[in-house]
Simulated scan of single mutants.
Amino acid sequence: MHGIVIRNTGNSYIVRTDDGQEVECKVKGNFRLRGIRSTSPVAVGDGVTVNMPPSGTGDNRGGYGTDVFFITEIDERRNYIVRKASNLSKQSHILAANIDLAVLVVTMARPETSTTFIDRFLASAEAYRVPVVLAFNKVDDFTAEEREKAGYLMALYTDVGYRCYAISALTGQGLEELLSDMNGKTGLLAGHSGVGKSTLLNRLVPEAHARTAEISEAHGTGMHTTTFSELYDLPGTSGGAIIDIPGIKGFGTFNMEPTEVAHYFRDIFRLSAGCRFNNCTHTHEPGCAVLEALEAHRLAPSRYASYLSMLDDKEEGKYRAAF
């Protein structure tokens, strides 16, 4: 049978088959040895082939339903979002696959989403051909200073080439425009814990009943309320769906060579066409159009700082302290 992975619980997967069934699936141990350097070889959004083991083998009993199937093949992915695994730096962590649109939820405070995190997410999405929009959440709770900062960042990322939305998951402000952008698409909901992803999911998919939690007063950070990844159908859309994933603390880039990093910063890549040398690293070379733009305030210092931080990712562990 063929289907799509709609839930990853860590120990097993729920697959919605092409005929509408939902079946619990596992992955055989030898499946993990096919050169897949990932903490989990299967991601929500993957198209997969599943088979039931022969009766009497002892492998066909599960907790979700009466039988457990095994995933035997993964369809070729159109794209995926991947980051460096937080505790196994030589491996990847695939967050979701076959995404039409990633919605990165950011907040100005309580908790604050750093521009470093935003830029790393955007660069990784560029590398794997995943379109991204930015949703600036909690506008109903902005101070005057936070409103000014959000306005600056929205103008910055709009100029870079990303659509930005000012939203309130709590009140519903701005969600109609965002939902219109997601119509008929498989979207990914991403961001730090505490930025309001669960509240937003409950707005978009009321039957999801996602748990929400208060922000830590001591640290201004969110608590993990989503513990696994899951795909939900978007009501009122033409085949739209949303993949909700646990909150991301840091975003270490995976399998990205230093010479490639500038290609995934749209603004830096555009500017690099004017560099004197084709192999310019944009760090010290004479005739570097990127450095000239930075000096002339035509390139945001935060974007350049993020670029430099990603060049340093080859040094193990440095990315973990960047957020």
Rank of each mutant, 00 (worst) to 15 (best):
R34K: 14
Y80G: 03
S229W: 11
G56Q: 12
Q173P: 02
N30K: 15
D141Q: 11
V42I: 15
T158F: 03
A169S: 06
G274Y: 07
L153Y: 13
V48Y: 02
G10E: 13
T107G: 03
V23Y: 00
S198A: 04
L122M: 14
A125D: 07
E76S: 03
R61W: 06
E73I: 03
L201F: 12
I94Q: 11
S55L: 14
V133R: 04
T199P: 01
G187T: 15
A208T: 08
A144D: 14
I215M: 05
I248M: 12
S86C: 05
A262H: 15
D244F: 01
S38F: 09
I99E: 11
L299A: 05
D244A: 07
E295M: 04
R7Q: 13
T237W: 12
Y13M: 09
L308F: 00
N98I: 05
R147Y: 15
N255G: 01
Y13D: 12
P41A: 05
N202Q: 07
P301T: 03
D18I: 02
P131W: 15
P131V: 09
S302Y: 00
G56L: 11
P301D: 02
V261L: 02
G187E: 12
K318Y: 02
T49A: 12
Y157S: 08
T158Q: 11
A262F: 09
S193Q: 11
S193C: 11
C288F: 00
P246T: 10
G172W: 14
Y157T: 09
T143A: 00
E22Q: 15
V5K: 07
I94R: 10
N79E: 13
R77F: 05
Y152D: 15
D233T: 10
A305R: 06
L299W: 08
Y13I: 03
G191A: 04
R163T: 13
F142Y: 13
F69Q: 03
S272L: 09
S306W: 06
V103F: 09
S86M: 06
V130C: 07
R211E: 13
A210K: 02
G194F: 05
S216N: 06
D119H: 03
H297M: 11
G161F: 15
V205E: 13
P54K: 15
E295G: 01
D140R: 08
H282Y: 11
F277P: 02
V15Y: 03
A85N: 05
D313P: 00
Y157W: 06
E145H: 04
F117H: 01
G56K: 11
A97F: 07
N60Y: 13
T226R: 05
S55N: 14
G63M: 10
I6P: 02
L204I: 14
G191L: 05
D67T: 06
P131Y: 13
Y264G: 02
N87A: 06
V132D: 13
V15F: 08
E285P: 01
D313I: 00
V48C: 00
V105Y: 05
V50G: 02
P206N: 02
